[in-house]
């Protein structure tokens, strides 16, 4: 039961991302061509509301479902890993039209070739883990 709630969150997430078309390769192409407001509107309104919600959580000291204080972990400081890693991610995102959530959602929509993308992504993550100490961060 403790884990079941995450299953429902996943279902909801999957439905939202399909119905909003953000899992579409075409929408991502259009975004990087600056030819539509759609994706910017989605990310922008999510972040706008997110800033407000996180501010409220901190301000009101809201508790999580287990009664603990909600902790929003800050990201480690840095530059090189974020800009380089981000760029590498962006290349793949634009080529395959899928980030680590949508690749599974698209599998669910019946695009079984996504399995290849998923396996390759796991391999990519594995490769990073092996090379981690040799990369600039």
């Amino acid at each position: 039961m403790k884990l079941l709630k995450f299953f429902f969150v996943g279902i909801f997430f999957g439905i939202v991302l399909v119905k909003s078309e953000v899992v579409s390769w075409y929408r991502i192409f259009e975004m990087f061509k600056f030819q539509s407001f759609h994706m910017y509107g989605i990310i922008g309104s999510a972040v706008f509301l997110g800033v407000l919600l996180f501010w409220l959580i901190k301000k009101l000291n809201l508790k999580s479902i287990d009664g603990d204080a909600i902790h929003l972990p800050p990201k480690d400081r840095g530059f090189v890993s974020y800009i380089l890693g981000g760029s590498i991610f962006g290349l793949g995102w634009a080529l395959g039209g899928a980030c680590p959530g949508p690749m599974y959602i698209l599998l669910g929509t019946g695009v079984f070739s996504m399995l290849i993308v998923i396996v390759a992504a796991v391999l990519g993550t594995f490769t990073y883990g092996v090379l981690k100490d040799k990369l600039p961060h």
Binding site: I88, G92, V117, A121, Y128
Partner: peptide, 8 residues
């Protein structure tokens, strides 16, 4: 595409 996403 998958490898770049996973690595990046």
């Amino acid at each position: 595409a998958g490898f770049l996403v996973g690595f990046g």
